[in-house]
Amino acid sequence: MTEKHQSDSPLSNPMDRRAMLRRSGAVLGLGAILSACAKDFGGDTSPGRVGLADPAAVLPDGTLDDLAVVRTMQSLEHAVVAALETMSGAGLYSAAQATYIERFVADHVAASETLGAAAVAAGGSPYACPNEWFMDRYVLPVYSAVESSDDVARDTRSATLAFETMLAHSYQHMVGLLSVPAHRKLLMTLGSAASRRSALLSILWTAPSHGYLGPALSDEASENDAAGFPIHYAVPASFGLVSQIPVVVGKPDDEGSRYQTSFQTPAENTFVYDYMSC
């Protein structure tokens, strides 16, 4: 009895080799069909997100062309105006200094108008606003350190000289990014004026104690003074520079360190691309 039941059940029959191959082929075939059809099943295949924050904004691709360079320099002129006017408004300049700071501001405003006109001529629009990146990274923190310094007059001079020198370096640096010779001439006309302002401040504030010529030209010149502050020379090197401008301002902290930064010529994160407006 028992033997008969076992022999009648298909599940109890021992699988022969032929049956196993037949069944395995059917399973594989069904799997292949399901895999081929899986893309039609719908549903979200993205990895998913944690939390309810808005999706990150996707920035447009900016094109670095002559227009972007011109607008970037216009934004830097406005940033320097903001810096000078902020320090002037806070009464950080002496009456004597104010005479040439006013002239500098007028020069920067005129330069901005020239650059704005060049932007329009190049088929774009002016950018008559301070460069946000430069303001956030340099102007605002430097001003905060200067106004709370243990020697406000010294640090006002250092910051002003560094801002003007940054413009001189930036104009020269930008020449290599421009393609139209007329734009190069325009920027270096303004760059020449920036170099003159930088040299004038060095002559007024540095030359009496440190001379005109920088370490690249004089054995006796040094990079920093006895207190560790960088010295900006009227003629720092034989050729015009595009290097970083070291800035040390502010009162010493508990460890004796002051706020330090380095102004740099514009890079990708500083450029004012055509899609940006203010």
């Binding site: 001189a168 104009y171 020269q172 020449v175 190069r184 270096m188 760059g191 020449s192 004026a193 170099s195 003159r196 040299a199 003629v235 090197a237 034989s238 050729f239 015009g240 520079l241």
Partner: peptide, 8 residues
């Protein structure tokens, strides 16, 4: 450009 900067 570098010469212009220096001579300025």
């Amino acid at each position: 450009a570098s010469i212009i900067s220096a001579e300025s």
